[in-house]
Nucleic acid binder design. Structure first.
Length: 739
DNA sequence: TGACGCAAGTTTTTT
DNA sequence: ACTTGCGTCA
């Protein structure tokens, strides 16, 4: 039997084989967590090339992140052995659409050098719109207007068709129209536009549609449950003829409905492609039986899902550790101490991940890591391309390409300060409005007229002159050289490097950007700007770090770790208080927990705190109840070290919620003292004290304790250096505050 | 133009 | 509680 198995299928289980070797035509692969869906996807592509005689350039595979795309391409590269992987189109929806629009700019009614506006730019545009329309920015907050606009775009609703039921809708419709206008005047598209414009183009233009149907005859989609309406329409339009649409989905991992993802697309697919072949992947290769049982127990409570029978060969396993902490500090303490124990027993720090619902929760964990000297890395904190200095430099580059980009113009027209204050800029804006043109055009006009005050004229001339020069330069030199010219012209280096360490690190960031540019000497400016906009992070792939990973439940999707800690399992946090209004939202919160639990391979910890310092943004005292989801976990999979195992009442939130009050042993005071021993009198430094170090600058003492006969002090330096453990008697450091 | 003080907003995130 | 953004004042 086995001897007849095709080499490509040999390492796969029966369900995977069936999915990989499925006949041509629409296919829906419903894959549980850890069931090898990425493997199936890559093997399917290899299968199509080898067995179905599909040419690689007819294949389009879409993923949701660049990282996923990169990984898929790398795997295929290895698997195929030749360079046919190079001819495959693998990328995010947005990247694929950006390429199509660039190529079909004329048909789409766009410029082929359009800029992509990120969230930050969008907000700037919308703020301007609110001002232009003289709206009250309290009642109509730019952010919520943008949400409405984004939702409309996801549903392919143009401004003219925006449904108006209430007065608020009416305002949204006006803001939407104006926003779109403003955006296009700057030759910009936002992320949603990339999808919407592509969908409408394919829908409207038969020629273009046929062209891409012919080009991308075989479509594959990862994380299909996260597609939105616009994405579905694109797929539908492209796949209608050849009907080779292969999608992988897991309804139970749908956690992005708040940004337009619609898992009902699975149902739509079944309706639009009634001949669709369905495959299940139910064998889990990741987790132990216990972890899988726990996760299943949680997700089973959701209705409106296809029940799956997930199983694993890994029998048994350690029970899921449940820990009730007194507060967030003690929770973090528990987690980090446990991590140290695990590290001593042979786990690498990189085997361990700590997950939470909100980013704010990372703080206590970081502090604990610093206290115990445990290395960690934080995922998704500040993104490289969102940094001020990077956005500034990118704004110059954008102006070199598109001087009419008002957002970039306003961003850097007076950076570094060159005497162009609010007054002058108001005149420029006025001139632009009169011309019905951009700020840049307005500025040009003013300079021609010579009506400005001489000081303002001089400053404006300098700026306009620079931009004009760059505009010329960009056609002659590489992006790297252009960047150098910009930095020299603006004196940006002197502006950022103000002598502070913060300034140094900002300059380093610019150097990093410079390095990225220099690495690809053939990339043109429009290409570079597109890449930058579509890539979240410069060092997305700094993996293999010897550190514990901290990340939100959302960013954990698709990852796996031998050990996982899920923290803050409390009512109000998970489910989040902002998601408790509707059953649908609570169901999504439950899926979030499910995603988190199923990231774990060997050991899973669930923790919650009796009270959380910043409670409901208000007073620091309200006790929090354990998450309702915890009561769905059967006792058989749980290990509760701090609590008696017997529970007479039926399992439920209530009975656990009272535990701290029941025992009444630990008052807040005793508890916190237990973790911060009163400093012994001979210590030179105290927790919370501000200090100045001759090399590292200013910082704050996180901990100071006697280690043998010497005082070890842990200081968190404020200027990006991070935490250091220092020997008090040796360090060139002084207290600068008394307490 | 820069520093300071007050108010308001705090889920999740890719592209 | 805490950050962040905006407006005012010097």
């Amino acid at each position: 039997m086995k001897t007849h198995t095709h080499p490509l299928l040999q390492t796969l289980n029966a369900q995977q084989q069936a999915a990989v070797a499925a006949p041509d035509g629409p296919a829906l692969v419903l894959a549980g967590p850890g069931s090898g869906k990425t493997r199936v996807l890559t093997h399917r592509i290899a299968w199509m090339l080898a067995e179905m005689r599909v040419a690689p350039w007819h294949v389009l595979a879409v993923t949701f992140t660049n990282k996923a795309a990169r990984e898929m391409r790398a795997r295929l590269d290895k698997m195929l052995g030749d360079d046919s992987a190079k001819s495959l189109t693998i990328g995010t929806f947005h990247a694929a659409c950006a390429r199509i629009l660039r190529r079909e700019a004329v048909a789409a009614g766009l410029s082929n050098n359009y800029l992509i506006f990120d969230t930050d730019d969008q907000l700037n545009v919308m703020k301007q719109v609110v001002k232009d329309l003289a709206l009250d920015d309290k009642r109509y907050r730019p952010k919520s207007l943008l949400n409405a606009v984004s939702a409309a775009k996801n549903e392919l609703i143009p401004p003219t068709a925006y449904p108006v039921q209430t007065y608020y809708d009416e305002v949204v419709a006006r803001a939407y129209a104006r926003y779109q206008d403003t955006l296009r005047k700057s030759d910009g598209l936002d992320f949603d536009d990339l999808l919407m414009e592509t969908a409408t183009l394919l829908r409207r233009d038969d020629l273009v549609r046929d062209k891409y149907r012919g080009r991308y005859r075989h479509l594959l989609v990862d994380e299909f449950q996260d597609t939105n309406m616009a994405q579905y329409v694109i797929l539908h339009l492209l796949a209608q003829e050849h009907r080779s649409l292969y999608v992988v989905a897991d309804e139970d991992q749908s956690i992005y409905s708040w940004r337009g993802a619609d898992y009902r697309n699975i149902q739509r697919l079944r309706e639009d492609f009634p001949e669709v072949q369905q495959h299940l992947l139910e064998e889990n290769y990741r987790s132990t039986q216990v972890i899988l049982d726990g996760a299943q127990a949680v997700i089973a409570q959701n209705t409106d899902r296809t029940p799956k029978h997930l199983f694993t060969r890994g029998r048994g396993g350690d029970r899921i550790m449940l820990h009730e902490a007194y507060d967030e500090r003690e929770e973090a303490d528990f987690v980090v101490r446990e991590i140290m124990t695990l590290a001593r027993s042979g786990y690498a720090y990189s085997d361990i991940a700590v997950m939470y619902r909100t980013n704010a929760q990372s703080r206590a964990l970081e502090e604990a890591c610093v206290r115990y000297n445990v290395p960690y890395r934080l995922i998704g904190a500040t993104r490289f391309y969102a940094r001020k200095e990077i956005k500034d430099v990118l704004a110059y580059l954008r102006l070199a390409q598109t001087p009419d980009d008002d957002v970039s113009f306003m961003r850097v027209v007076n950076v570094p300060t060159r005497g162009l204050g609010a007054r002058t800029l108001a005149v420029v804006a006025e001139a632009a409005n009169a011309l019905e043109g951009s700020r840049f055009q307005g500025a040009l006009h003013l300079l021609e007229q010579g009506t400005l005050a001489s000081r303002a004229t001089k400053a404006l001339k300098t700026f306009v002159g620079m931009v004009t020069r760059w505009q010329q330069l960009r056609t002659e030199v590489s992006v790297a050289q252009l960047l150098d010219a910009i930095l020299a012209d603006t004196g940006y280096e002197g502006y950022v490097r103000d002598g502070s360490d913060d300034g140094e690190s900002r300059w380093e960031n610019i150097q990093a950007l410079r390095a990225v540019v220099a690495e690809a000497p053939d990339v043109t400016l429009p290409e570079f700007l597109t890449d930058v906009a579509l890539v979240a992070d410069i060092d997305e792939l700094s993996e293999e770090v010897r550190a514990v990973t901290f990340l939100t439940l959302h960013s954990a999707k698709g990852l796996e770790y031998p050990v996982v800690f899920l923290t803050g399992l409390e009512e109000g946090l998970l489910p989040h208080s902002r998601s408790m209004d509707s059953a649908q939202q609570v169901a999504e919160e439950r899926r979030l927990l499910y995603v988190g639990m199923t990231r774990a391979e060997k050991r899973l910890y669930l923790t919650y705190a009796f009270r959380r310092g910043w409670g409901q943004y208000s007073s620091s005292g309200d006790p929090s109840a354990p998450s309702r989801f915890l009561s769905d976990l059967p006792d058989a999979v749980l290990d509760r070290p701090r609590r008696a195992k017997k529970r007479s009442e039926t399992a439920g939130t209530r009975s656990w919620g009272a535990s701290w009050r029941d025992s009444a042993v630990r008052t807040p005071a005793t508890s916190s003292r237990a973790h911060t021993p009163a400093p012994a009198p001979q210590l030179h430094y105290r927790q919370g004290q501000r200090v100045r170090h001759t090399h590292y600058g200013e910082g704050i003492v996180l901990e100071s304790q006697m280690d043998g006969r010497s005082e070890m002090v842990t200081v968190l330096f404020t200027n990006g250096i991070g935490a250091k453990r220092l020997l008090a008697s040796m360090a060139p450091m002084e207290p600068i505050s008394a307490h």
